[in-house]
Design a protein around this nucleic acid. Structure first.
Lengths: 350, 350
DNA sequence: GCAGCCGTTGATAACGTTTGCCGAAATTCA
DNA sequence: TGAATTTCGGCAAACGTTATCAACGGCTGC
């Protein structure tokens, strides 16, 4: 069985548990010869440190809790992947909790993770408003980084994409393509991504057409809403639908095709996030790609910094990363001006 | 700080730590009045048990490790979701490890999880052959359940969909629709799902057409391969492409549309797994839906059974669950015989 | 009324590590 | 060469919980 403890290694190598602990953890210099004997014995016996005991004694579990609203949201798997890889690279393990978009469940999971003594928490809050209390309480106990969505000001460090810059990229692109009758299919949720994207549209779309900022339909971040939203704005005879995320765009695209509209000939469609489906849809959907690996790297770095300097409550940081525009067929030249094929061209933000 | 220990609760409630532990853990009966006082004090102080200490003493962490090949594989998020929910419902937490399809990384993660003293492991092996040693070694230490893919015979308990039954559903459906020139676009990997599906095709397709079992193209489980595979079988003028999973089907569908083929008029396309994209593709892809929630429930139940009777090495179980056929537009009536609209009809296996 | 029993409770010893402290040996410096 | 300083290793005390054992009541039953 996995019963080999420090005592056994100590006995086998002829020294005390303390020395064995020191050479294995490298906390203090130890004689070269002794170190060799200890390492040999440990390897021979197949010693595996007991993380539970270590955690109890040193009050650090080497574990990070990751709380997210819905793993089935197609944007998150890539993020989870990058986060777990980045954290594992630092020797930490990841406790995963999917709260199913329910702030109450979210609070319970956070509580459970805290009682499991995670060293830190990564949270994508389910709801900007109703997640706040639980997140703030947790942030008071352990280093906590908010990702993707905000949770009110001054709660904790946060890392997210610059939604305004992303929306600006989209609007510039559509403007350059001569689109003017633009509509926004967004989400009315309190999640910060929803709010920021619709604010950015409201702020930027006026440059295309004075009435554009008013052509807005708000629902949620789903394919179903995308389908339904098209009908609500159809009377305005739009030549471009700016969607707040790729799921909405997929739904909009489907409904447009049902209605017999030509995409991009009659109307362009754009999304946000660049989930896998955006590239695989027909036509491919022009969208704003989030720098997922960089988001993960920034988040883990933020955590490491807090963990390295315990108690030191430095100023909170709100990191915003620049997204890039991915141009695909769904926003190609309109009916009048068909040009060359230009699919999947990535345009980094300046 | 989170410094409230059993001692504090004991002092506040006027009894010993032993009693407090007993009432809070419910391990042994305790006086009603005392229990009330203890619970009151615990609540008032906001006591949170220290899982690290508990784990050290009782040699059980209440934690399960989940090792999977690629969280970005669109079939897994739904499975992860159901697994975490099922496990959390039993009071366990989930340590997640994504090994990026690399058996070496997989072995390291398994090792790390074991040294973190997980009570049990859920593993979706990256490779049938090269994952075997690490999985077998782990299974000797803790209860382990293999999911989705096998890992050689007699290694551990396993839960998976019945791939043969699923493939049979597809072939029956195509036969009933009058398709005869069937081709199989599969994966040559050693993963058991790949092998079982292509074996089931080989065994069942002969009933449609004597040459069908020979019309096979093998690559991997990707959209890219699906696109490429179409060209390899196109000379055979197929009227149906049976794909080993939905990603291949999506790729095949794209390439067919590029070639100007009508789906399902000229050729039907079927997938396997029922990932979200299958429903959202245009046309929607007929596929075999895995009973994800039931798979998760069976797996956790299997774990619970092993955990309840420690050391009792009962016989290994290999549970196979019946899938259901989801008929969508991609396998509708062929060119000659267009009928009524029948989208998204689920036909459970008998 | 006394032996014996159960139901409750309190001390206390683990669980396997890390770590502060101290002694011994080895090294340096005057 | 003696004292000061460093280096190295051991002892033992934590960390917060659970489990074992004994003690102390108040019972029942004869």
């Amino acid at each position: 069985m996995s019963e080999i403890t420090l005592r056994d290694v100590a006995r086998a190598s002829g020294c005390s548990v303390a020395t064995v602990s020191r050479v294995l953890a490298g906390t203090r210099p130890v004689g070269a010869e002794t170190a060799r004997r200890v390492r040999e014995a440990a390897a021979a016996l197949g010693y595996r440190p007991n993380h539970a005991a270590r955690a109890l004694r040193s009050r650090a579990t080497g574990t990070v809790g990751l709380v997210l609203p819905q793993i089935t949201n197609p944007f998150y798997p890539a993020l989870v992947r990058e986060l777990t890889h980045a954290l594992h690279a630092e020797g930490r393990a990841v406790l995963l909790a999917d709260c199913d978009d329910d702030p109450v469940a979210e609070a319970e999971y956070i509580d459970d993770l805290l009682s499991r003594r995670v060293d830190a928490l990564l949270v994508i809050p389910a709801d900007e408003r109703r997640s706040r209390d639980a997140v703030a309480a947790a942030a008071a106990r352990v280093p906590l980084v908010l990702m993707d969505r905000g949770c009110g000001p001054g709660i904790a460090d946060s890392v997210a994409v610059d939604n305004s810059a992303g929306m600006a990229l989209v609007l510039d692109h559509l403007a350059a393509a001569g689109r003017r009758r633009v509509c926004f299919l967004g989400a009315d949720g309190t999640a910060s991504a929803a709010a920021e994207r619709r604010a950015a549209y409201a702020a930027g779309s006026g440059a295309l057409d004075a009435a554009a900022p008013g052509r807005v339909a708000l629902g949620d971040f789903s394919v179903e809403w995308g389908r339904a939203a098209v009908d609500l704005v159809w009377d305005a005879r739009p030549d471009a639908l700016v969607c707040a995320n790729d799921l909405i765009a997929v739904g909009a695209l489907q409904r447009l095709q049902q209605l017999g509209a030509d995409v991009p000939g009659d109307v362009a469609v754009t999304g946000f996030d660049d989930i896998p489906m955006a590239a695989l849809s027909a036509p491919g959907i022009t969208t704003v790609r989030q720098p997922v690996a960089e988001l993960a790297a920034e988040a883990t770095q933020l955590l490491s910094r807090r963990l390295a300097a315990p108690g030191t409550e430095g100023p909170q940081r709100a990191i915003r990363l620049a997204p890039e525009l991915v141009v695909r067929e769904s926003s190609g030249p309109g009916a009048g001006e068909r040009g060359a094929d230009e699919a999947d061209v990535a345009v980094p933000v300046s």
